[in-house]
Every structure is written in structure tokens, then in C-alpha cells.
């Protein structure tokens, strides 16, 4: 092989090797699942830090929302269908906050394992539909036994 070709080959091998290594590392990183928030399951299992600011994400449990009559205090339960955590919050909730909806809360766990939120964000999905269709869908799904739980 002449030296120019040899050099070119070496360059290509260098680049490909680097890219392959990067892809391998990225795949490994993705398998490690870097979470932007903790799940209720992790809180129950004691993996989440206590009395430190963190994010908690999950679904609002149906029928768990309690509102104070004289202030903006709210309490509700968050679940990921494996664990449940109680959240307390004072302030205005976003439009999309409702039971059965996925949300992300910022705040800290107190020593009683109740999450004191100072910010509540509602997460929504990419599905959009008119209200009539959604009502019709609900009727059919209630007819069908056992509603499928939609993960966050």
C-alpha cells in the first residue's frame, strides 16, 4: 500500500473507532436511564433523598385531591402504579391538573415522607381530540371491563 492511502485509511479508522466508541457509551448511558425526576416507587423504596430539593413525577390518584376551603392549600396522592406518595402544595394549579393526569412536582420530602411541593407542572401528551370524542371514548372504555392504566 502506498503511504498516502495508508494514511487515509488510518484517518478513517481513527474516526470510525471514535464514533463507534461514542455510540457504545451513549447506548450504555441510555440503559442507565438518567431521570429528570424521581418516581413514587423510588420514594417508597427509600431511594430518594430526604429534605433535599428534587422533582417527583407521577399520576394524580383518582379521588385523592383534597382542597382547603379557606386557602389555596391542596393535598393529593401521586402514583406510578407501584408506589404512592402524598403531596402537599399551596398555590394555583395549572389548567391541566386533574385526577388521573401525569404531573411533575418540585419540592422536598419531609421526614414523614410527605412531599412538600413548591411548584406543580402538568405534563400532557401529544394526543389531541375534541371533547365530544373524548366523552364517547370514555363511555366505551367504561363499558369495556378494566381500564388500561396509561403510564406516564
Amino acid at each position: 500500500m502506498n503511504p498516502v492511502r495508508k494514511q487515509r485509511l488510518a484517518i478513517i479508522a481513527f474516526v470510525l473507532l471514535g464514533l463507534a466508541g461514542a455510540v457504545a457509551l451513549a447506548l450504555y448511558a441510555l440503559s442507565q436511564n438518567i431521570n429528570l425526576f424521581f418516581s413514587p416507587d423510588q420514594v417508597v423504596a427509600g431511594e430518594a433523598p430526604v429534605e433535599q430539593r428534587m422533582r417527583l413525577g407521577g399520576m394524580v390518584v383518582e379521588g385523592s385531591v383534597l382542597r382547603a376551603s379557606d386557602s389555596l392549600k391542596v393535598q393529593f396522592d401521586l402514583t406510578d402504579y407501584r408506589g404512592t406518595v402524598t403531596v402537599q402544595y399551596e398555590g394555583i394549579l395549572p389548567d391541566l391538573f386533574r385526577e388521573g393526569q401525569g404531573i411533575v412536582a418540585m419540592g422536598e420530602l419531609n421526614s414523614d415522607r410527605v412531599f412538600q411541593a413548591d411548584e406543580v407542572l402538568a405534563k400532557h401528551d401529544e394526543k389531541y381530540m375534541p371533547p365530544e370524542i373524548s366523552r364517547a371514548l370514555e363511555r366505551t372504555s367504561q363499558a369495556a371491563a378494566g381500564e388500561e392504566a396509561r403510564p406516564l
Partner: peptide, 19 residues
């Protein structure tokens, strides 16, 4: 918490920028 995911990604970024 484990931080090896972030370190792996940084390694990946390093390799990509190196080549």
C-alpha cells in the same frame, strides 16, 4: 445517586469531539 450514565455520555461527547 449513580452518576455513571452521565460520565458515559461525557465520554461519548469527548470521543465525538476528538474525531
Amino acid at each position: 445517586m449513580p452518576y455513571n450514565g452521565q460520565l458515559a455520555l461525557m465520554g461519548g461527547i469527548l470521543l465525538v469531539s476528538l474525531v
